[in-house]
Simulated scan of single mutants.
Amino acid sequence: MYNPAEVSSDLRAFVAEEIRLHPRVAYQGLLTEEGAATRVAAALPALQRFRHDYAGAISVVDWDHRLPSQNLVLRIYGYYGEDTLDAGYEAFDDRLDQIAERDKYPEFDVPDFDGLAADEAYEIELSPTGQIGRCRLTSTWRRTVASRDAAAAVALVQACDEYQKLVTASPSRPAYLGDLEAVSWTPPCETDHERWTLDVWYLLAFDGRIGSGRSFLADLETQQIVSVRDFSVRKG
């Protein structure tokens, strides 16, 4: 389904080429059969680029720190250029060495592959048999939104009927809750929308620990609000 390519706009092409296994996953014989990478890639949701094509990726089935494993994690690290890709390979090899140093007995815990440097990083729930679960973008830059993009997304929300009705229905909303805020880029794998969206929050309540409100997903390409949903967030 996915053809290997030097450059790709979807990370699934690289997953289909190769999936690496944490030594403790390989030890259990999980996902070691021929064609496992292709099968897993075909089951993944779209993992489309943000604003740059991918020069390569590192895909690794990570250990859940249990023997036998119950809930694995597929980590996919995407790279936009050869320099960052080479740095990713080096970081992977360094982590593998750290694991080998501590992997003396099965009862000893060893590191996993969380937190490798990458241009885009995804974490996907994976069963020991290869069934795909929840997928999320773990790159911290997702919360860095350029002022121009934020302003465009907020303007889209302000013009939509759902927001105007919400404001009308909340006349006593405290001013200290602030205005609309573009908080995060959201990839297609988290929303089932075909493009990246900007998540814009409108806080309706905050008790010092937990905030709640309404989330608007803005598609800047089509200039549309594609989803409106409730959210809650805990401070810290």
Rank of each mutant, 00 (worst) to 15 (best):
Met1Lys: 12
Pro4Ser: 12
Pro4Asn: 09
Glu6Thr: 11
Val7Cys: 07
Arg12Phe: 00
Ala16Gln: 02
Glu18His: 07
Glu18Ser: 03
Ile19Arg: 07
Arg20Gly: 04
Leu21Phe: 05
Pro23Ala: 05
Pro23His: 06
Val25Met: 02
Val25Pro: 00
Ala26Pro: 01
Tyr27Pro: 00
Gln28Tyr: 11
Gly35Asn: 08
Ala36Thr: 10
Ala42Pro: 04
Ala43Tyr: 07
Leu44Ile: 01
Arg49Leu: 09
Phe50Trp: 15
His52Cys: 04
Ala55Ser: 13
Ser59Cys: 15
Val60Trp: 03
His65Phe: 14
Arg66Asp: 14
Arg66Phe: 10
Leu67Gln: 14
Pro68Cys: 11
Pro68Thr: 10
Gln70Ser: 13
Gln70Glu: 15
Asn71Ala: 15
Tyr79Asn: 02
Tyr79Asp: 02
Tyr80Ser: 01
Leu85Thr: 02
Gly88Trp: 00
Asp94Phe: 12
Leu96Gln: 13
Asp97Trp: 10
Gln98Cys: 09
Gln98Ile: 08
Arg102Gln: 15
Arg102Val: 08
Asp103Trp: 14
Lys104Val: 14
Glu107Asp: 13
Glu107Cys: 07
Val110Asp: 03
Pro111Gly: 10
Phe113Val: 00
Asp114Ile: 04
Gly115Glu: 05
Gly115Trp: 09
Asp119Pro: 05
Glu120Asp: 09
Ile132Glu: 05
Arg134Tyr: 09
Ser139Lys: 06
Thr140Asp: 10
Thr140Lys: 14
Arg142Gln: 09
Asp149Phe: 10
Ala150Arg: 07
Ala151Pro: 00
Ala153Arg: 07
Ala155Pro: 03
Leu156Glu: 03
Cys160Pro: 03
Cys160Ser: 03
Glu162Leu: 10
Glu162Trp: 09
Tyr163Glu: 02
Gln164Leu: 11
Leu166Cys: 09
Val167Met: 12
Val167His: 08
Thr168Ile: 01
Ser170Leu: 13
Pro171Trp: 00
Pro171Lys: 00
Pro171Glu: 06
Pro171Asp: 08
Ser172Leu: 10
Arg173Ala: 12
Ala175Asn: 12
Gly178Ala: 08
Gly178Gln: 02
Gly178Arg: 08
Ala182Cys: 11
Ala182Ile: 09
Trp185Ala: 05
Trp185Asp: 08
Pro187Lys: 08
His193Gln: 11
Glu194Lys: 14
Arg195Val: 08
Trp196Glu: 00
Thr197Glu: 14
Thr197Pro: 13
Tyr202Asn: 06
Leu203Arg: 15
Phe206His: 14
Asp207Ala: 01
Gly208Asn: 06
Ile210Leu: 12
Gly211Lys: 00
Ser212Cys: 12
Ser215Tyr: 05
Leu217Lys: 14
Asp219Leu: 07
Thr222Leu: 09
Gln223Trp: 03
Gln223Val: 02
Gln224Gly: 06
Ile225Trp: 03
Val226Phe: 10
Arg234Trp: 00
